[in-house]
Design a protein around this nucleic acid. Sequence first.
DNA 1: TCACATTTGTGCGTATGTATG
DNA 2: CCATACATACGCACAAATGTG
Lengths: 248, 248
Amino acid sequence: MTGLASSIERRNGVSLWRQIADKILQGIASGDFAENAALPPEVALAERYGVNRHTVRSAIAALVQEGVLRAEQGRGTFVLSRKRLSYPIGARTRFSTGLQGQTSERHIALLSSSTEPASRRIAEALGIAKGAAVIRLETRGEADGHAVSRATTWFDAKRFAGIEDAMAQTGSITTSLKRFGINDYLRHSTVLSARHADADDLAALDLQPGAIVLVTVAVNVTLDGQPIQFAESRFPAERVELNLSAGD
Amino acid sequence: MTGLASSIERRNGVSLWRQIADKILQGIASGDFAENAALPPEVALAERYGVNRHTVRSAIAALVQEGVLRAEQGRGTFVLSRKRLSYPIGARTRFSTGLQGQTSERHIALLSSSTEPASRRIAEALGIAKGAAVIRLETRGEADGHAVSRATTWFDAKRFAGIEDAMAQTGSITTSLKRFGINDYLRHSTVLSARHADADDLAALDLQPGAIVLVTVAVNVTLDGQPIQFAESRFPAERVELNLSAGD
DNA sequence: TCACATTTGTGCGTATGTATG
DNA sequence: CCATACATACGCACAAATGTG
C-alpha cells in the first residue's frame, strides 16, 4: 500500500524532485490523478512521498514547465488534457477554414491596431520603402472559447487604409482583404521557431510561465506575387500542432 | 553606481527573482555581461542586488529556462549567443543540401539501429501490416561539430534490409536510399510541434534542462507516392529555425 | 462586507551532495 | 586532497489568491 512512497530513493543519482515528478506522471498515466482534475495539495503530496514541500514544488514546477500540470495560486494544481488542435500551414493558409471540423466556432479578435513607420525588416517583406506607413494589427485567434494564436500583422497603410475596421467587423483576414479587391492570396514563405512565452503571450494565450510557443513569421502574396501581408504568429505548443500540408 | 541595486523593490507586485532576472537581461543588453562569457558568481550577484543567493538562483533558473543563460555545475553561468541555423523544409527536404552555405561541414551520425515490429502508427504511415518488421535508426545531425538534430527513422525491413550499414558508411539518407534504387523522393507530410527536451534530447543535442525542441513527424514517399520512410526529428529551438520553403 | 480556511507563491537560513580544476 | 561553485533538500515564515460562510 505504501509501495509508491517506498520506491523513492535517495542518493541513487536521480534527484528526489525528478523522482517525485515521475511518480506524478505515473499517477496520471495510471488514472490515479484524473485529467482536468486537481492534484492533491502540495503538503499532501509531500507527506505521501515523504519529502519536503519544496521538493514537491520542484517536481510540480518541472511538470508545469513540461505542460503536464497547471498551478493556480489559491486554487490548486491541475492535470491538463493533451489533445492538440492541428493547424494546417501551406500555400493557402487560412485561420478559419484551417480549423474547420476540429472546432465548432472560431474567429479572430482584434486586440488593437495602429499605424507606424515600417521597420527595415517589414519594409523589405512588403516591398515598400523603409519608414513608409504600415498598419499593425494585434489579434488573437480563438476556437471554442480557447485562445489558439496571438498574431501581429502588418499591411501597407496606403493600399489597405481602414483594414483595421474591416477586421474588427468581420473577424477574418480573408474577408477583410476582399474589401480591397483581393479574392485570393498565397503563403509565400514561413519561418518557424519556438521559444518560451513572454509576458504578452502568457496573458493573451492564457498560459503559465514556462509555456512554449511556436512562432511563425510569414509573408502572404497575391496570385501574381505581390506581397500584401507580413505576420508573426504565436501558437501555444501545448494546444496546437502545425500541419505542413504538401500541396494546397 | 549602485543605481542598479537600489531600483530593486520589494512587495511591488513583481517578485524579487523576476526583477533580478530582468536586471540580468538589462546587463546583457547593455553589454555589462558579455555574450559567451561567465556571469559573476551567484554570491557576487546576490550582493550586488542586495538579495539572498536563492533569489539570484531563481532568476538564473528562469533565464536558463528561457535559453538566455547556461549554468554549468562547478564552472559558472554563461551568457549564450543567439544565432540560429535555418533548416529548410519542403517537398525536397534533405539534411545536407539544406544547410549548404550555412555550415562548412555536416553529416548524419548513426547512433544505433534495430529491427522491431511496426506499431500501428508506423505501419499506417509506411503502408505495411501492423507488426511487420521495420528497421529503426537513431541518428544525430551534426554541423560544424554542433548537434543540430536528433532523429528516429523507420524503414520497411523487407524492402530496405541493410540500410543501417549504408547509413553508417555514408552518413546520408539520400545516398543510402540510392543503393535501393531510389534516386529521388518527396516529403509527403510534416506535422510540427514543440516541447521541452527530454533526457535523451538533452544528452544527444547537448542542451540544458528546460531547453525547447522543435519536433517534426514526417513521411517521405517515392515520386509515385509510395511511402518509404517515417521519421521523427527533434531540433534544438535555440540553435535551429525551420524554413518552410514554398515551392521545392 | 468581512472573516476565515485552503492552497499556491516567495523568501531566507542552513546543511549537504556533487562536479570541476 | 582541497577549494570553489553549482545542485538538492529541509524547515520555517509569511504573502497572495481563491472560495466559502
